[in-house]
């Protein structure tokens, strides 16, 4: 096994592990805010590593075959990564804000500045 394949497999395993953690956290945490923590951070990180894997893979194929479509694939994957980085945290923020406006309280919370500011 050569080193490019090792690198690709390591990146792929990191992606699988963190996506698995995000999915488990979705069921282990008690309320919507903590679930968002698990779901957003872990799946975003896992998917970022998936894009890294595909970029490494397509660059390797480009070096071997010298077909331009693999370089095209790497650039498109980079754009997918940018789209993910912009949209995922914003979506999580929208859900958290909507949940708080609906009146769902964070479980076991010791302090809630946002609620206090709305009361005043």
């Amino acid at each position: 096994m050569t080193w490019p394949i090792m690198v690709i497999l390591i990146l792929l395993s990191i992606s699988l592990i963190f996506n698995a953690l995000g999915t488990i956290g979705l069921h282990r945490f008690p309320d919507v805010y903590t679930r968002l923590h698990a779901a957003t951070k872990c799946t975003t990180f896992g998917t970022i590593f998936m894009t890294f894997t595909v970029m490494a893979y397509s660059v390797r194929e480009y070096v071997i075959t010298e077909e331009a479509k693999f370089l095209n694939m790497a650039v498109h994957t980079l754009l997918a990564l940018v789209a993910l980085l912009v949209t995922n945290p914003t979506g999580a923020h929208a859900i958290a804000r909507a949940a708080h406006k609906m009146g769902i309280k964070p479980e076991k919370a010791v302090r809630d500045d946002l609620k206090d500011s709305e009361v005043n």
Binding site: F29, Y33, H37, H100, P106
Partner: peptide, 17 residues
């Protein structure tokens, strides 16, 4: 991500806004 992994496994949380 390592922090969240730790909390997923141990379940230790003390949240606040």
């Amino acid at each position: 991500n390592f922090d969240v992994a730790y909390r997923v496994i141990t379940g230790k949380i003390e949240p606040a806004i």
